[in-house]
Design a protein around this nucleic acid. Sequence first.
DNA 1: CCAAGCTACTTGCTTACGCAAGTAGACTCG
DNA 2: CGAGTCTACTTGCGTAAGCAAGTAGCTTGG
Lengths: 158, 158
Amino acid sequence: MAKVEPLTQTEEVLWRSLMRLVITLPRALGDDLVRARGMTANEYTTLMHLSEAPKRELGITDLAAAAALSVSRMSRLLDDLQARQLILKRRSETDGRGNIAYLTRQGLAALKSAYPEHLASVRRLVVDHIDDADKARTARVLEAVAISVDESATRRPK
Amino acid sequence: MAKVEPLTQTEEVLWRSLMRLVITLPRALGDDLVRARGMTANEYTTLMHLSEAPKRELGITDLAAAAALSVSRMSRLLDDLQARQLILKRRSETDGRGNIAYLTRQGLAALKSAYPEHLASVRRLVVDHIDDADKARTARVLEAVAISVDESATRRPK
DNA sequence: CCAAGCTACTTGCTTACGCAAGTAGACTCG
DNA sequence: CGAGTCTACTTGCGTAAGCAAGTAGCTTGG
Protein backbone atom coordinates (compact mmCIF):
# COMPACT_ATOMS: atom_id res chain seq x y z
CA MET A 1 0.00 0.00 0.00
CA ALA A 2 1.82 3.04 -1.27
CA LYS A 3 1.30 6.71 -0.50
CA VAL A 4 -2.27 7.93 -0.66
CA GLU A 5 -3.35 11.08 -2.35
CA PRO A 6 -4.82 13.30 0.35
CA LEU A 7 -7.94 15.39 -0.04
CA THR A 8 -7.66 18.77 -1.68
CA GLN A 9 -8.08 21.87 0.42
CA THR A 10 -11.64 22.28 -0.79
CA GLU A 11 -12.52 18.66 -0.19
CA GLU A 12 -11.09 18.92 3.28
CA VAL A 13 -13.29 21.90 4.13
CA LEU A 14 -16.29 20.13 2.66
CA TRP A 15 -15.60 17.04 4.64
CA ARG A 16 -14.93 18.69 7.97
CA SER A 17 -17.96 20.91 7.68
CA LEU A 18 -20.14 17.95 6.91
CA MET A 19 -18.77 15.98 9.84
CA ARG A 20 -19.33 18.90 12.14
CA LEU A 21 -22.89 19.28 10.93
CA VAL A 22 -23.51 15.64 11.40
CA ILE A 23 -22.69 15.92 15.08
CA THR A 24 -24.06 19.32 15.75
CA LEU A 25 -27.24 19.68 13.77
CA PRO A 26 -29.30 16.93 15.34
CA ARG A 27 -28.48 18.27 18.75
CA ALA A 28 -29.42 21.85 17.92
CA LEU A 29 -32.60 20.74 16.26
CA GLY A 30 -33.58 18.30 18.94
CA ASP A 31 -32.98 20.91 21.60
CA ASP A 32 -35.29 23.36 19.89
CA LEU A 33 -38.00 20.76 19.54
CA VAL A 34 -37.65 19.44 23.05
CA ARG A 35 -37.67 22.88 24.57
CA ALA A 36 -40.69 23.95 22.59
CA ARG A 37 -42.72 20.76 22.46
CA GLY A 38 -41.18 18.06 24.61
CA MET A 39 -40.61 16.05 21.49
CA THR A 40 -37.39 14.67 20.02
CA ALA A 41 -36.46 15.04 16.37
CA ASN A 42 -36.95 11.33 15.80
CA GLU A 43 -40.38 11.45 17.32
CA TYR A 44 -41.26 14.42 15.18
CA THR A 45 -40.16 12.84 11.92
CA THR A 46 -41.86 9.60 12.84
CA LEU A 47 -45.15 11.40 13.30
CA MET A 48 -44.48 13.21 10.04
CA HIS A 49 -43.94 9.98 8.14
CA LEU A 50 -47.14 8.60 9.58
CA SER A 51 -49.07 11.69 8.59
CA GLU A 52 -47.89 11.27 5.02
CA ALA A 53 -48.75 7.59 4.81
CA PRO A 54 -51.86 6.37 2.94
CA LYS A 55 -54.18 5.65 5.84
CA ARG A 56 -51.98 7.38 8.44
CA GLU A 57 -50.62 4.04 9.42
CA LEU A 58 -47.41 2.17 8.77
CA GLY A 59 -45.66 -0.99 9.91
CA ILE A 60 -42.81 -0.66 12.36
CA THR A 61 -40.22 -1.87 9.91
CA ASP A 62 -41.27 0.70 7.33
CA LEU A 63 -41.19 3.47 9.89
CA ALA A 64 -37.76 2.39 11.04
CA ALA A 65 -36.46 2.53 7.48
CA ALA A 66 -38.04 5.92 6.87
CA ALA A 67 -36.42 7.37 9.97
CA ALA A 68 -33.13 5.51 9.45
CA LEU A 69 -33.44 3.86 12.84
CA SER A 70 -33.14 0.27 13.93
CA VAL A 71 -36.37 -1.68 14.16
CA SER A 72 -35.91 -2.23 17.86
CA ARG A 73 -35.41 1.45 18.49
CA MET A 74 -38.52 2.29 16.50
CA SER A 75 -40.50 -0.29 18.42
CA ARG A 76 -39.66 1.39 21.69
CA LEU A 77 -40.05 4.88 20.33
CA LEU A 78 -43.57 3.93 19.29
CA ASP A 79 -44.26 2.59 22.76
CA ASP A 80 -43.41 6.01 24.12
CA LEU A 81 -45.55 7.79 21.58
CA GLN A 82 -48.40 5.46 22.39
CA ALA A 83 -48.05 6.18 26.09
CA ARG A 84 -48.53 9.82 25.20
CA GLN A 85 -51.55 8.94 23.08
CA LEU A 86 -49.97 10.31 19.92
CA ILE A 87 -50.15 7.01 18.09
CA LEU A 88 -51.80 3.65 18.50
CA LYS A 89 -50.14 0.32 17.98
CA ARG A 90 -52.61 -2.26 16.81
CA ARG A 91 -52.41 -5.73 15.40
CA SER A 92 -52.72 -5.90 11.62
CA GLU A 93 -55.82 -7.71 10.45
CA THR A 94 -54.28 -9.02 7.26
CA ASP A 95 -50.99 -10.14 8.80
CA GLY A 96 -51.07 -11.54 12.29
CA ARG A 97 -47.44 -10.81 12.97
CA GLY A 98 -47.63 -7.28 13.46
CA ASN A 99 -48.51 -4.24 14.86
CA ILE A 100 -49.02 -1.25 12.69
CA ALA A 101 -48.73 2.23 14.10
CA TYR A 102 -51.64 4.53 13.55
CA LEU A 103 -51.52 8.29 14.00
CA THR A 104 -54.21 9.44 16.42
CA ARG A 105 -56.09 12.70 16.24
CA GLN A 106 -53.94 14.00 19.07
CA GLY A 107 -50.81 12.86 17.28
CA LEU A 108 -51.77 14.82 14.22
CA ALA A 109 -52.59 17.83 16.36
CA ALA A 110 -49.22 17.62 18.10
CA LEU A 111 -47.47 17.41 14.75
CA LYS A 112 -49.33 20.41 13.39
CA SER A 113 -48.69 22.47 16.46
CA ALA A 114 -44.98 21.68 16.37
CA TYR A 115 -44.65 22.45 12.69
CA PRO A 116 -44.16 26.23 12.73
CA GLU A 117 -41.60 26.06 15.49
CA HIS A 118 -39.74 23.29 13.75
CA LEU A 119 -39.86 25.01 10.40
CA ALA A 120 -38.44 28.14 11.95
CA SER A 121 -35.55 26.13 13.37
CA VAL A 122 -34.84 24.57 10.01
CA ARG A 123 -34.74 27.96 8.38
CA ARG A 124 -32.71 29.60 11.07
CA LEU A 125 -30.16 26.81 11.27
CA VAL A 126 -29.85 25.81 7.64
CA VAL A 127 -31.98 27.19 4.85
CA ASP A 128 -31.45 30.87 5.57
CA HIS A 129 -27.71 30.47 5.25
CA ILE A 130 -27.85 29.20 1.71
CA ASP A 131 -28.08 31.55 -1.22
CA ASP A 132 -31.13 30.99 -3.36
CA ALA A 133 -28.80 30.54 -6.29
CA ASP A 134 -27.08 27.64 -4.52
CA LYS A 135 -30.08 25.80 -3.20
CA ALA A 136 -30.92 23.62 -6.17
CA ARG A 137 -27.36 22.55 -6.68
CA THR A 138 -26.80 21.85 -3.01
CA ALA A 139 -30.01 19.88 -2.80
CA ARG A 140 -28.92 17.67 -5.67
CA VAL A 141 -25.49 17.12 -4.21
CA LEU A 142 -26.77 16.22 -0.76
CA GLU A 143 -29.40 13.95 -2.20
CA ALA A 144 -26.82 12.06 -4.22
CA VAL A 145 -24.58 11.64 -1.21
CA ALA A 146 -27.45 10.56 1.00
CA ILE A 147 -28.43 7.91 -1.52
CA SER A 148 -24.90 6.61 -1.76
CA VAL A 149 -24.60 6.30 1.99
CA ASP A 150 -27.94 4.55 2.25
CA GLU A 151 -26.90 2.06 -0.36
CA SER A 152 -23.62 1.37 1.30
CA ALA A 153 -25.52 0.78 4.54
CA THR A 154 -28.08 -1.61 3.09
CA ARG A 155 -25.61 -3.45 0.93
CA ARG A 156 -23.13 -4.14 3.67
CA PRO A 157 -24.97 -5.98 6.51
CA LYS A 158 -23.93 -9.49 5.60
CA MET B 1 -49.11 33.28 14.74
CA ALA B 2 -50.69 33.05 11.31
CA LYS B 3 -50.10 30.60 8.52
CA VAL B 4 -46.48 29.70 7.88
CA GLU B 5 -44.89 29.63 4.49
CA PRO B 6 -43.72 26.04 3.92
CA LEU B 7 -40.39 25.09 2.38
CA THR B 8 -40.09 25.00 -1.38
CA GLN B 9 -39.73 21.68 -3.12
CA THR B 10 -36.00 22.21 -3.46
CA GLU B 11 -35.57 23.25 0.14
CA GLU B 12 -37.51 20.21 1.21
CA VAL B 13 -35.20 17.88 -0.70
CA LEU B 14 -32.19 19.69 0.68
CA TRP B 15 -33.47 19.43 4.18
CA ARG B 16 -34.51 15.79 4.08
CA SER B 17 -31.28 14.72 2.47
CA LEU B 18 -29.30 16.55 5.09
CA MET B 19 -31.30 14.98 7.89
CA ARG B 20 -30.82 11.58 6.40
CA LEU B 21 -27.10 12.12 6.12
CA VAL B 22 -26.94 13.30 9.66
CA ILE B 23 -28.27 9.98 10.88
CA THR B 24 -26.68 7.73 8.36
CA LEU B 25 -23.21 9.03 7.68
CA PRO B 26 -21.70 8.70 11.14
CA ARG B 27 -22.91 5.14 11.33
CA ALA B 28 -21.48 4.17 7.96
CA LEU B 29 -18.21 5.83 8.71
CA GLY B 30 -17.91 4.46 12.19
CA ASP B 31 -18.63 0.97 10.93
CA ASP B 32 -15.84 1.19 8.39
CA LEU B 33 -13.38 2.42 10.95
CA VAL B 34 -14.37 -0.07 13.61
CA ARG B 35 -14.24 -2.97 11.22
CA ALA B 36 -10.86 -1.98 9.86
CA ARG B 37 -9.14 -0.61 12.92
CA GLY B 38 -11.22 -1.18 16.04
CA MET B 39 -11.53 2.57 16.38
CA THR B 40 -14.62 4.76 16.48
CA ALA B 41 -14.97 7.91 14.41
CA ASN B 42 -14.76 10.05 17.53
CA GLU B 43 -11.60 8.35 18.62
CA TYR B 44 -10.11 8.86 15.20
CA THR B 45 -10.89 12.54 15.01
CA THR B 46 -9.68 13.05 18.54
CA LEU B 47 -6.32 11.56 17.66
CA MET B 48 -6.34 13.70 14.53
CA HIS B 49 -6.92 16.88 16.48
CA LEU B 50 -4.12 15.98 18.83
CA SER B 51 -1.75 15.31 15.97
CA GLU B 52 -2.45 18.77 14.59
CA ALA B 53 -1.96 20.56 17.90
CA PRO B 54 1.23 22.51 18.66
CA LYS B 55 3.01 20.07 20.92
CA ARG B 56 0.68 17.15 20.18
CA GLU B 57 -1.16 17.90 23.34
CA LEU B 58 -4.43 19.59 24.24
CA GLY B 59 -6.64 20.11 27.26
CA ILE B 60 -9.74 18.01 27.59
CA THR B 61 -12.09 20.94 27.19
CA ASP B 62 -10.41 21.99 23.96
CA LEU B 63 -10.56 18.49 22.60
CA ALA B 64 -14.21 18.22 23.51
CA ALA B 65 -14.97 21.43 21.66
CA ALA B 66 -12.97 20.32 18.62
CA ALA B 67 -14.85 17.04 18.44
CA ALA B 68 -18.20 18.62 19.36
CA LEU B 69 -18.58 16.30 22.33
CA SER B 70 -19.39 17.00 25.95
CA VAL B 71 -16.46 17.39 28.27
CA SER B 72 -17.50 14.37 30.29
CA ARG B 73 -17.69 12.20 27.23
CA MET B 74 -14.26 13.34 26.11
CA SER B 75 -12.85 12.63 29.53
CA ARG B 76 -13.98 9.02 29.33
CA LEU B 77 -13.02 8.65 25.71
CA LEU B 78 -9.51 9.72 26.64
CA ASP B 79 -9.45 7.17 29.45
CA ASP B 80 -10.14 4.49 26.86
CA LEU B 81 -7.48 5.79 24.52
CA GLN B 82 -5.03 5.89 27.37
CA ALA B 83 -5.82 2.31 28.32
CA ARG B 84 -4.85 1.42 24.77
CA GLN B 85 -1.67 3.48 25.08
CA LEU B 86 -2.62 5.79 22.26
CA ILE B 87 -2.53 8.89 24.39
CA LEU B 88 -1.31 9.91 27.81
CA LYS B 89 -3.22 12.02 30.29
CA ARG B 90 -0.90 14.04 32.44
CA ARG B 91 -1.26 16.87 34.87
CA SER B 92 -0.45 20.25 33.41
CA GLU B 93 2.57 21.90 35.00
CA THR B 94 1.35 25.43 34.57
CA ASP B 95 -2.23 24.77 35.70
CA GLY B 96 -2.76 22.31 38.48
CA ARG B 97 -6.37 21.65 37.56
CA GLY B 98 -5.92 19.60 34.62
CA ASN B 99 -4.87 16.96 32.71
CA ILE B 100 -3.75 17.51 29.21
CA ALA B 101 -3.86 14.70 26.70
CA TYR B 102 -0.67 13.94 24.86
CA LEU B 103 -0.46 11.85 21.69
CA THR B 104 1.96 8.95 22.14
CA ARG B 105 4.15 7.49 19.46
CA GLN B 106 1.76 4.55 19.21
CA GLY B 107 -1.16 6.92 18.96
CA LEU B 108 0.41 8.67 16.04
CA ALA B 109 1.20 5.34 14.43
CA ALA B 110 -2.39 4.16 14.87
CA LEU B 111 -3.65 7.35 13.32
CA LYS B 112 -1.33 7.06 10.35
CA SER B 113 -2.19 3.45 9.78
CA ALA B 114 -5.91 4.21 9.87
CA TYR B 115 -5.63 7.14 7.52
CA PRO B 116 -5.72 5.42 4.11
CA GLU B 117 -8.67 3.28 5.08
CA HIS B 118 -10.53 6.24 6.47
CA LEU B 119 -9.72 8.42 3.50
CA ALA B 120 -11.06 5.73 1.19
CA SER B 121 -14.31 5.67 3.14
CA VAL B 122 -14.65 9.41 2.92
CA ARG B 123 -14.15 9.31 -0.81
CA ARG B 124 -16.41 6.35 -1.39
CA LEU B 125 -19.22 7.71 0.76
CA VAL B 126 -19.05 11.39 -0.02
CA VAL B 127 -16.41 13.03 -2.13
CA ASP B 128 -16.68 10.74 -5.15
CA HIS B 129 -20.35 11.57 -5.52
CA ILE B 130 -19.78 15.27 -5.94
CA ASP B 131 -18.85 16.76 -9.27
CA ASP B 132 -15.57 18.62 -9.25
CA ALA B 133 -17.45 21.63 -10.51
CA ASP B 134 -19.71 21.57 -7.44
CA LYS B 135 -17.14 20.97 -4.76
CA ALA B 136 -16.07 24.51 -4.03
CA ARG B 137 -19.58 25.80 -3.88
CA THR B 138 -20.79 22.92 -1.72
CA ALA B 139 -17.86 23.33 0.61
CA ARG B 140 -18.68 26.98 1.12
CA VAL B 141 -22.34 26.28 1.72
CA LEU B 142 -21.71 23.53 4.23
CA GLU B 143 -19.11 25.57 6.01
CA ALA B 144 -21.52 28.48 6.39
CA VAL B 145 -24.23 26.22 7.73
CA ALA B 146 -21.87 24.48 10.11
CA ILE B 147 -20.75 27.80 11.49
CA SER B 148 -24.31 28.95 12.00
CA VAL B 149 -25.22 25.82 13.87
CA ASP B 150 -22.14 26.05 16.06
CA GLU B 151 -22.98 29.61 16.94
CA SER B 152 -26.53 28.78 17.78
CA ALA B 153 -25.26 25.98 20.02
CA THR B 154 -22.75 28.08 21.90
CA ARG B 155 -24.99 31.08 22.21
CA ARG B 156 -27.94 29.21 23.62
CA PRO B 157 -26.78 27.34 26.78
CA LYS B 158 -28.17 29.70 29.37
C1' DC C 1 -4.40 38.69 51.09
C1' DC C 2 -8.36 36.23 51.22
C1' DA C 3 -13.30 35.24 50.09
C1' DA C 4 -16.12 34.69 46.39
C1' DG C 5 -16.46 33.26 42.13
C1' DC C 6 -14.63 30.87 38.06
C1' DT C 7 -12.48 26.99 35.47
C1' DA C 8 -11.04 22.18 34.39
C1' DC C 9 -12.03 18.11 35.27
C1' DT C 10 -14.25 13.52 37.15
C1' DT C 11 -17.98 10.62 38.52
C1' DG C 12 -22.87 8.99 39.03
C1' DC C 13 -26.91 8.61 36.76
C1' DT C 14 -30.20 8.48 32.86
C1' DT C 15 -31.34 8.02 28.09
C1' DA C 16 -30.89 6.76 23.15
C1' DC C 17 -29.51 3.56 20.53
C1' DG C 18 -28.07 -0.94 18.05
C1' DC C 19 -27.36 -5.94 18.08
C1' DA C 20 -28.58 -10.65 19.19
C1' DA C 21 -31.76 -13.91 20.54
C1' DG C 22 -36.43 -15.28 21.04
C1' DT C 23 -41.39 -15.84 19.41
C1' DA C 24 -45.18 -16.16 16.53
C1' DG C 25 -47.31 -15.90 12.30
C1' DA C 26 -46.83 -16.34 7.01
C1' DC C 27 -45.02 -18.64 2.81
C1' DT C 28 -43.29 -22.39 -0.29
C1' DC C 29 -42.50 -26.60 -2.50
C1' DG C 30 -41.98 -31.52 -2.67
C1' DC D 1 -50.26 -30.34 3.70
C1' DG D 2 -46.50 -30.11 6.69
C1' DA D 3 -41.28 -29.04 7.42
C1' DG D 4 -38.28 -25.66 6.68
C1' DT D 5 -37.52 -21.01 5.80
C1' DC D 6 -38.71 -16.21 6.11
C1' DT D 7 -40.66 -12.04 8.13
C1' DA D 8 -42.32 -8.76 11.75
C1' DC D 9 -41.80 -7.84 15.80
C1' DT D 10 -40.26 -7.65 21.10
C1' DT D 11 -37.02 -8.01 24.76
C1' DG D 12 -32.43 -8.29 27.08
C1' DC D 13 -28.26 -6.34 27.11
C1' DG D 14 -24.11 -3.51 26.24
C1' DT D 15 -22.22 1.00 24.67
C1' DA D 16 -22.14 5.95 23.63
C1' DA D 17 -23.52 10.00 25.06
C1' DG D 18 -25.20 14.13 27.94
C1' DC D 19 -26.39 16.36 32.33
C1' DA D 20 -25.79 17.41 37.17
C1' DA D 21 -23.22 17.47 41.14
C1' DG D 22 -18.81 17.29 43.32
C1' DT D 23 -13.75 18.61 43.86
C1' DA D 24 -9.62 20.98 43.44
C1' DG D 25 -7.00 24.66 41.76
C1' DC D 26 -6.88 29.47 39.74
C1' DT D 27 -8.18 34.59 39.76
C1' DT D 28 -9.80 39.01 41.47
C1' DG D 29 -11.78 42.96 43.89
C1' DG D 30 -12.30 45.01 48.28
